[in-house]
Amino acid sequence: MKPTNDNPTVQSRVVTQRVHCDWRRAYALAADPARLPDWASGLAKSALVRHGDHWTVRTPESGDARMRFAPSNDFGVLDHWVTPEGVPEVYLPFRVIGVAPGVSEFQFTLLRQPHMDDAAFARDAEWIARDLQALCGLLEAG
């Protein structure tokens, strides 16, 4: 699946967060759409509802959105695609890697969308950082 924005001048920012757990356990929780509202406040305001090959979610800023997720894999790829109502699909590259025994790192690449000004881009990066911290809190709490 290809990103929707092919513009080579698009800005990106990688937001990372380390967590003290095996990457497979981190992947299992982060890849579960049912758990998204537990940690992804920037994306999921309520439970996701499955509709065949996609999910519907209520977002905090854009109303209802359609979501697709990367297929289950052994590589830590957690990419997802979000299509808010009336907006083109947004590609969200997301990974978890094992960096040492019992230590993983989440890596979320924020791609600046055409409508984003500097403040919105910075706000989204901060929101992603908070969400990754919440995800780590869930994992480290057991």
Rank of each mutant, 00 (worst) to 15 (best):
L139G: 09
V90A: 00
T83D: 00
P88T: 00
D74C: 00
R24Q: 15
A31E: 08
P33T: 04
V10D: 01
H115L: 11
S62M: 09
A40M: 10
R130F: 10
L29E: 01
Q113R: 11
D131W: 03
P8E: 07
L36S: 04
T83H: 00
N73I: 08
F94C: 12
K45G: 15
Y91F: 08
A28H: 00
T9P: 00
E85V: 09
A70R: 02
V14R: 07
A31Q: 03
P71N: 12
D64K: 10
L78P: 07
L48C: 06
L48Q: 01
L138V: 12
A120L: 11
G86F: 03
W55T: 03
P84N: 00
Q113N: 07
L48N: 00
R13K: 13
W39R: 01
G98H: 08
P101R: 12
H115R: 12
Q11T: 08
S104G: 06
D118L: 10
P60M: 06
R24L: 09
H80K: 02
V14S: 07
A30W: 01
H54R: 11
Q113T: 09
D118M: 11
V19T: 11
R35T: 15
P37G: 04
A44Y: 02
Y27N: 03
R123Q: 14
A125V: 07
A129R: 12
P101E: 14
V19I: 11
H115K: 12
P71G: 14
D64M: 14
I97E: 13
P93T: 04
I97V: 14
W23N: 00
C21D: 09
I97Q: 12
A120M: 11
G76I: 04
R66V: 13
D124E: 15
D124F: 12
D38C: 07
L110A: 05
Y27H: 08
G98M: 01
R130A: 15
